[in-house]
Design a protein around this nucleic acid. Sequence first.
DNA 1: GGGGTATTTCATCAATCGGTGAAATCGACG
DNA 2: CGTCGATTTCACCGATTGATGAAATACCCC
Lengths: 203, 203
Amino acid sequence: MKSTTPPAAPRGRGPRGPRAEGDSRAEILAAARTLFAAKGFRATTTREIAARAGVDPALIHHFFGTKADLFEATVQLPRIAGEVGARLEAPSGDAAEGLARLYVEELFTRDVETFAAMLRTAVSSPEDMPWLRQMMEDTMLAVATRLLRGEHVALRAELIGAQMIGILVLRHLVGVEPIASTSTDDLVAAMAPALRALIDGAA
Amino acid sequence: MKSTTPPAAPRGRGPRGPRAEGDSRAEILAAARTLFAAKGFRATTTREIAARAGVDPALIHHFFGTKADLFEATVQLPRIAGEVGARLEAPSGDAAEGLARLYVEELFTRDVETFAAMLRTAVSSPEDMPWLRQMMEDTMLAVATRLLRGEHVALRAELIGAQMIGILVLRHLVGVEPIASTSTDDLVAAMAPALRALIDGAA
DNA sequence: GGGGTATTTCATCAATCGGTGAAATCGACG
DNA sequence: CGTCGATTTCACCGATTGATGAAATACCCC
């Protein structure tokens, strides 16, 4: 019976064809993205990532170096940063509604995993990823210079950012109702007046 | 010299008088509060708490049960919840400015450690403290029923809560400038118009 | 002054973590 | 067919973690 010894999978390279070249690497990336988004950096273990990718834990360190390297490879910050910058350049009818739609409909849906991983990590273990704080500051500063005029532009831009971060937390990270299940249209309509007040500045 | 063997502290009860009865317990609570606020639940180790309290790690499990029990004993939620409720009952001249001052000047200064510990834990490891989500929902619902009228009251209340959470993240958890160093007066003045828009509801 | 109780430390455990080194297998190339 | 490089797994290490059980000490009450 030798029931104590599970068949001991073959050791060498991927035995069959269905898993194409480099597929394991992509699968590791996908698993890491999902888990980092769901639990943050520290709470996610390399063994968990490997299990979800159907791969030996050692393969992670073979493709990517350390766990922090894998994290940086997982969240694609340059792409998102460039996207936000380009969107702010283009003029839009209503700045408040446009900004709300950009975050709620695009960034928080298509790239929700990256944002979740970033914020969960920045909040739970800031010393692990020190560059996250600087990156947040830069993003808010971009909004400030391109969209705001008047006094306290940086502070008002960060209040706009705070609104977005809070929505990300309640709607996507913690899952508080009813905001977690509200349609994007209703959410945009509800937040537009507040954003407008911050964009226009105090009376 | 016997430098290899540190004197091996006496084992029994606190030998001297200066440390009064139950003082160790209070010291553990204070150390836990600071560390949970700074790093969240998972990233804080019981040994770290014990070291900061100047106490053997085993003493933690003697006074409080498990690490999760210590966390629940650390954040004093009933007191804060009651305080917010009482404050919402009392009428104030400007509801928006009053709400801003309540959070920025009182809750986020006197009880900043409790809020930081709660949010860091809720965001980084939600499954560790499942009751945190329900508690957030209840708090927002209280604001909704006592302060708001019109349509989508729950959603608007949660947008107000999102604003507060974002400020907590940027100003106190991550430390983004300039909002981290802004005076409470300037901050309240900058956020009041946005809160007013959410309290009054859409046009 | 003696027994009981609360407090405190020591020693230790089982589990888990990130990471390393070597072996094994496969595919490509000559 | 032989060789080389890429891929994958195994076995393992040192460190750290939360938690437990027992021993030791001090205080309190009678």
